[in-house]
């Protein structure tokens, strides 16, 4: 059977708005991917452990709270520690340009700003997993 792309969408931090995350999750599902949605208030530890157990190809973090400079590096570090360094990590949220550059240097594959067309996120993932 053909491989399916599996994506984990998580919403770390304290803010309680996950509309954006849900919209992305649904768009990826409609594009034929298997999307694991974990809900609100995830710690980096919970996100990394879930991603590993679910053996996803892609991890998407939606961050509005401004904690991105601690959140992303911790998730990346934990994924490496748990033997899942090869997972593609992307993010969405309001993140200043200089931080975006810094995060991409650290290994975040892409940051999508507010108002991103979900189609862009779909093709971003499809480009990296063309078999699907």
């Amino acid at each position: 059977m053909a491989r399916k792309v599996r994506v984990l969408i998580a919403k770390p931090g304290l803010d309680g708005h996950d509309r954006g995350a849900k919209v992305v999750a649904n768009a990826l599902k409609d594009a034929g991917m298997e999307v694991i949605y974990t809900g609100l208030h995830q710690t980096p530890e919970m996100i990394a452990e879930s991603a590993v157990q679910e053996d996803v190809d892609v991890v998407g973090l939606s961050i509005l709270s401004g904690a991105h400079m601690t959140m992303f590096p911790r998730v990346l570090g934990l994924l490496r520690e748990k033997g899942a360094a090869d997972m593609l990590v992307f993010g969405g949220g309001i993140i200043p340009a200089e931080d975006v550059e810094e995060l991409e240097k650290l290994g975040v594959a892409r940051i999508f700003g507010p108002g991103t067309d979900t189609g862009d996120i779909v093709s971003f993932i499809r480009d990296r997993f063309p078999a699907n």
Binding site: K29, V35, I36, Y37, T38, T43, E45, E49, Q53
Partner: peptide, 28 residues
């Protein structure tokens, strides 16, 4: 979904605290 082949797997939402316990393995 029989139409798109995609799936939204949301059971973890209700099992959140479990992902902090390494002795529990959850697979969707």
């Amino acid at each position: 979904s029989p139409f798109t082949g995609g799936a939204l797997l949301g059971d973890r939402i209700r099992m959140q605290s479990l992902s902090a316990d390494p002795e529990v393995f959850v697979r969707s």
